[in-house]
């Protein structure tokens, strides 16, 4: 085995050790998730290694008008929540310091803004006894209770969904990147040996 080939194999071994130790750990990136619970928006900010972003700056913008709505700071667990200032599409930005920044877009439908009722959805009273109009106060109270209960029940699911929507580093990404680099080595070697053969 030539010295050069042995060196190549040794370098490959070092790269291999690094690679297999890396696939077991997390990448370094800052992430923010947000979900709505009742009239409040909850956010969770973490480094991808799992550590909470403590004292990270959160700025909330109206994504339509780009107007700053409010700002705050994450607590010791990386959480920050606020009362919905306006039911609109929001851009929640996280500044975690030292050049780390990310954002989360909260669309209008996250606030449960119901679509306008169309005539086909209205119940038409049948012949016979006319339908009694329900008490509007009772309907409002019922809707509000139902909304609160659903928020409570769905909150963990919303949180989980928000977490799942964040990009993750996969083995495919790692292998893909290494493949690109090795491909470039191949192209370089091709031109190197082609010029060598010509000369």
């Amino acid at each position: 085995m030539s010295m050069k080939f042995r060196g190549f194999i040794q370098c490959l071994c070092v790269a291999g050790i690094l690679f297999f130790s890396a696939t077991r750990v997390h990448a370094h990136r800052v992430t923010i998730f947000a979900w709505v619970e009742g009239d409040r928006v909850h956010t969770e900010s973490r480094f991808s290694g799992g550590k909470a972003v403590v004292n990270g700056k959160i700025i909330v913008y109206d994504d339509r008008s780009n107007k700053r709505l409010l700002e705050g700071v994450t607590d010791a667990h990386g959480n920050f929540s606020f009362k919905v200032p306006r039911k609109t599409r929001m851009r929640i930005e996280l500044l975690a310091g030292a050049g780390h920044r990310n954002k989360w877009i909260l669309k209008e439908d996250a606030f449960g803004m119901s679509p306008p009722t169309t005539p086909s959805q209205e119940v038409t009273p049948g012949p016979g006894k006319p339908m009694e109009k329900p008490d509007p106060n009772l309907v409002a109270a019922f809707e509000s209770t139902l909304e609160r209960l659903l928020d409570k029940k769905l909150s963990p699911v919303m949180k989980q969904l928000a977490r799942m929507a964040a990009p993750k580093t996969t083995l495919k990404d790692v292998l893909g990147g290494i493949g690109y680099i090795f491909g470039m080595i191949g192209v370089g070697m091709y031109f190197h040996y082609r010029s060598k053969l010509k000369s």
């Binding site: 050069k4 060196g7 190549f8 370098c11 490959l12 070092v14 790269a15 690094l18 690679f19 130790s21 890396a22 696939t23 750990v25 997390h26 990448a27 370094h28 991808s48 290694g49 580093t169 790692v174 990147g177 290494i178 680099i181 090795f182 470039m184 080595i185 370089g188 070697m189 031109f191 190197h192 010029s195």
Partner: peptide
């Protein structure tokens, strides 16, 4: 040109090392 392979392998090492938290 004979250092291309070495450069690529070190580049791959750096690419992966940033994943080690």
């Amino acid at each position: 040109s004979d250092k291309i392979a070495r450069t690529g392998i070190m580049s791959a090492c750096f690419f992966v090392a940033s994943l080690i938290h």
